[in-house]
């Protein structure tokens, strides 16, 4: 067991190290100048030089993403419940949701920025929310509407209320699908935040740092931002995985 745990950590770390080495070697071998492709050895100094900004802006990007995602969970679940319980509401909302989801969010960003001028936090959270709530509402709706009638009947035949049935059966039964969607939604929300920060820079977030790297032609900084973003993305994803283990670990049938 201990050996296996060590392997679980060592294998990905080794893979990352090999990846970085290969990257460094490739840049050296091809003789690429920095403005074409920065090497890992260029990126670390960039990190260090701007470490305070990375911390501050990274935190801004993170909390706004989490806020947007949280909003998406609340609103998406509510919509999903309405659509899951009522066929009429499902028929009514579904085309609207699909159409809404089909609009590329990059085009929505300037519109939102114009509508709520100066409300940067709000705008960013709004985009993160808009881009991520679709998979959540659809997964909750499908989870609830495909609940086999027998599951409902074992409690309904005892005179249990609709809420009790939802709380004791429908909700837990939907959790695995919900977390599947939440992983997708977390990634999407993160894209949303960055979209806002980069397309409509307002002096905040990693997107802004990226933009200033671009303006001052500081390519190692731009690459450093990319890596910081990847790091945050991984953090967010595994936070969802941990929540999934806690609340829907029972759905994992693989031998422990």
């Amino acid at each position: 067991m201990k050996m296996q745990n060590a392997r679980k950590v060592m294998v990905p770390l080794a893979a990352i190290a090999i990846f970085l080495l290969a990257w460094e070697w490739l840049v050296w071998f091809m003789g690429w100048p920095r403005y074409k492709m920065a090497a890992p050895s260029d990126i670390w100094p960039a990190f260090w030089r701007f470490r305070h900004m990375f911390l501050e802006y990274g935190w801004q990007t993170l909390w706004r993403t989490v806020a947007g995602l949280g909003l998406a969970v609340v609103v998406g679940t509510a919509f999903g419940m309405l659509m899951g319980f009522s066929r009429t509401l499902r028929d009514a909302f579904y085309p609207l949701l699909v159409g809404f989801n089909a609009v590329p969010k990059a085009t929505v960003v300037p519109v939102i920025a114009l509508m709520f001028v100066g409300q940067h936090d709000f705008n960013t959270i709004l985009i993160a929310f808009m881009i991520s709530f679709f998979p959540i509402s659809v997964s909750v709706a499908i989870g609830l509407s495909t609940l086999e009638p027998e599951y409902r009947d074992i409690l309904r035949s005892l005179g249990a209320s609709k809420f009790t049935i939802f709380w004791k059966i429908a909700l837990p039964k939907t959790l695995p699908e919900f977390f599947g969607a939440l992983k997708v939604a977390a990634t999407l929300a993160f894209i949303g935040t960055n979209l806002m920060e980069i397309v409509e820079p307002h002096g905040r977030g990693l997107g802004h740092l990226f933009d200033s790297g671009k303006i001052s032609a500081d390519y190692p900084l731009m690459f450093a931002v990319l890596i910081a973003l990847a790091f945050l993305g991984i953090l967010l994803y595994y936070a969802v995985v941990v929540l999934e283990r806690i609340f829907a670990g029972w759905a994992d049938r693989s031998p422990a």
């Binding site: 027998e150 599951y151 074992i154 035949s157 837990p172 829907a248 029972w250 759905a251």
Partner: peptide, 11 residues
């Protein structure tokens, strides 16, 4: 009530 499907809750 009991059905052909035992409908036990996995969690």
């Amino acid at each position: 009530m009991a059905f052909q499907n035992p409908v036990l809750l996995e969690w």
